[in-house]
Design a protein around this nucleic acid. Structure first.
Length: 258
DNA sequence: ATGTCAGGTTGGACCTGA
């Protein structure tokens, strides 16, 4: 079974790219982030026509997450991260698919830092960590995936010295990611490729993709009950070179049958 | 500092967020 995560950066603006990629790679389960579309503007028909069930949590202009499945039904569990009833940003969606507890998240960017946006990012991270601990304690097979907006280590940044003050790389944020992973989660890409330079994002400026000036900020965290099933993982980086494409590339993992 | 996108709008040119 293949599970993918993809920050599409506008699902309607990038729809041809999304559909082409789905057709070519046929992931079983897909988590999408940055839909940038209100609930009623999700391209449900186009995605259904490719054979996918979908649930989504939309929002006008910004954010927005979705979970797609072409195997089993998607049984929604919740559409907000617990811990702040005043948080109205659509950044979280959790569902049961094919016996797997799938959590799709779009962690706040946090720039400029320091500032209220950075504070919001850290609070969001704390809420995620609290919720993740409960999921771990349940013992269920859980996949916690999406755009974390964090480069965990210097290996995940093309020029670390330029990013130390950025909200995606500041020590507080890297520590927050480490605290989360240290609960017992497996970073799928790093488990299989501990020393390789692997990026999932290249910004639109200065030919970043052409120069491979990238970041690794989209991650798969696996609970101990599912991590032993991990057989492969990768980034469909060629998609980043397509016309009218997102600044992120799709990331995927392959799981063996139980 | 630079640079490039998408979505949105006190309307086709500028704003925000990334």
């Amino acid at each position: 079974m293949k599970i993918a995560t993809y920050n599409v950066n506008g699902i309607n603006g990038r729809l041809p790219v999304l559909l082409k990629w789905l057709n070519e790679t046929e992931p079983d389960i897909v988590c999408l982030q940055e839909l940038k579309a209100p609930q009623e503007k999700f391209p449900e028909k186009a995605i259904q026509d490719l054979g996918y069930h979908a649930i989504w949590n939309g929002q006008k202009s910004w954010n927005g997450v979705a979970i797609l499945s072409r195997t089993d039904e998607v049984q929604e569990i919740c559409r907000e991260l617990p811990g702040d009833e005043e948080d109205i940003q659509s950044r979280y969606l959790e569902a049961m698919v094919a016996g797997i507890h799938v959590c799709c998240l779009y962690l706040p960017n946090g720039n400029p830092a320091p500032g209220p946006k950075f504070d919001y990012k850290l609070r969001w991270f704390e809420r995620l960590t609290t919720h993740a601990a409960e999921l771990l304690a349940s013992g269920k097979p859980v996949v916690l995936t999406g755009d974390y907006n964090v480069m965990p280590t210097e290996l995940d940044v093309y020029k670390p010295e330029r990013w130390h003050e950025d909200a995606l790389f500041r020590p507080e944020v890297r520590q927050a990611f480490k605290t989360l992973v240290d609960q017992g989660w497996t970073d799928a890409i790093r488990k299989l490729y501990p020393d390789q330079t692997i990026y999932t994002f290249w910004d639109y400026f200065r030919n970043a993709y052409g120069r491979n000036a990238g970041l690794r900020i989209d991650h798969f965290l696996l609970s101990p009950s599912i991590a032993p099933r991990l057989t492969a993982a990768g980034v469909d980086s060629a998609v980043r070179g397509w016309e009218k494409t997102s600044d992120h590339a799709p990331v995927w993992i392959e799981l063996s049958d139980e």
